[in-house]
C-alpha cells in the first residue's frame, strides 16, 4: 500500500532524490563559477564553496546557534498558536454558515494585506523580541490553516456524517469524529504552507526590526560590516535549510498519518 501511494506521484523515491541532487549541484557550480570569475567583486559575491564552508563553520559558533534557537522558538510558538487559533476558527466558519457570512467581510479585508507590511506597525505597538515576532507570525500563518480547514470541511462526505448521525452521535460529535478527521489531510497541508510562511516572517521580522536576537539579526548585522556578504549568504543558507528540513519532516508526517487519504486519492479501493 505504501509503495502505491508514493509511486502514484511520478518518479520513484531514489529517482526524485537523484534529480534533486543534480539540480543543487548545477546551481552550486554556476554560483561557484560566477563567484570565481570575479565579474562582480568577490566581497559582494563570494563563491558558493566559501559560503557553504562558512555555513558549516557556524555549527561551532555558540552565539550563532543561540540566534538560531531564538528564531526557531519564535517560529514554533507562532506556528503552534496559529494552529490552535485557526483550526477551531475554521471549524466554526466551515460549519456555521451564519458566522461564515458575518466574518467574510473582515476576512476579505484583512487577507490581502501583506503580513510583512505590518512589521513596522507591530514594531511601534509591540516593541521588539518575541512579543512582537510571535503575534506577527501567528497572524500570517493562520490564513492558510484557516482556509484549508474550511476547504477540507467542504469536502467531507455527507454519507459519512449521516451514518454517524443515525448511530446517535450529536452534531458536535459528528463534527469532531467525521468532519475534523476527514479534513485533517487538508489542514496538514495548510500547516505545511503556514510553516514556511512562519519562517519567512520570523527571519524577515528580525531583519527589519534590526536589533535583538535571532537568525535575521545575524544576517542584518552581517550586512552592515565590510566583507559581511559571506555571513549574510551563510545565514541565508541556514534559513533555507531550516525551511527544507521542516518541510520534509511535515511531508513525512503527512504520508504516515494520512495513508488512507493518499490510498483513496490514488484510486485504490
Amino acid at each position: 500500500m505504501t509503495h502505491q501511494s508514493t509511486s502514484s506521484r511520478g518518479l520513484s523515491r531514489p529517482g526524485k532524490w537523484a534529480r534533486g541532487a543534480v539540480g543543487v549541484a548545477v546551481l552550486f557550480l554556476a554560483s561557484e563559477a560566477l563567484g570565481r570569475a570575479e565579474i562582480v567583486d568577490r566581497s559582494y559575491l563570494p563563491p558558493a564553496s566559501t559560503v557553504v564552508a562558512r555555513a558549516f563553520e557556524l555549527f561551532g559558533d555558540a552565539e550563532f546557534l543561540h540566534n538560531v534557537r531564538v528564531t526557531l522558538t519564535a517560529w514554533g510558538l507562532g506556528l503552534g498558536f496559529a494552529i490552535v487559533i485557526a483550526v477551531p476558527l475554521g471549524l466554526l466558519f466551515g460549519s456555521v454558515p451564519a458566522i461564515n457570512t458575518g466574518a467574510r467581510a473582515i476576512v476579505e479585508f484583512l487577507r490581502p494585506i501583506p503580513s510583512v507590511a505590518l512589521i513596522p506597525l507591530a514594531g511601534l505597538v509591540l516593541g521588539s523580541g518575541l512579543g512582537m515576532e510571535v503575534p506577527l507570525i501567528v497572524y500570517a500563518a493562520s490564513w492558510p490553516i484557516l482556509f484549508n480547514t474550511m476547504y477540507g470541511l467542504d469536502d467531507v462526505d455527507p454519507t459519512a456524517k449521516e451514518t454517524l448521525r443515525t448511530f446517535g452521535f450529536s452534531r458536535t460529535q459528528v463534527l469532531l469524529r467525521v468532519s475534523l478527521r476527514s479534513a485533517a489531510p487538508f489542514i496538514a497541508t495548510g500547516v505545511r504552507l503556514a510553516a514556511s510562511i512562519a519562517l519567512i516572517l520570523a527571519v524577515g521580522t528580525e531583519i527589519l526590526s534590526g536589533f535583538g536576537e535571532g537568525l535575521g539579526i545575524f544576517i542584518a548585522n552581517a550586512s552592515n560590516v565590510p566583507d559581511g556578504t559571506r555571513d549574510v549568504l551563510a545565514g541565508t543558507v541556514w534559513a533555507g535549510c531550516l525551511g527544507l528540513i521542516s518541510d520534509t519532516l511535515l511531508v513525512q508526517a503527512e504520508n504516515r498519518l494520512f495513508r488512507w487519504h493518499f490510498a483513496l486519492r490514488s484510486g485504490a479501493s
Partner: peptide, 20 residues
C-alpha cells in the same frame, strides 16, 4: 430525533465507512 434502537445500512458503503 434519531432512535437508539435503530441502525441504518447505506448503499454507499465506501463513503459510509470511515477510511481512517
Amino acid at each position: 430525533g434519531v432512535p437508539d434502537e435503530l441502525a441504518v445500512v447505506f448503499q454507499d458503503y465506501s463513503r459510509s465507512l470511515l477510511p481512517w
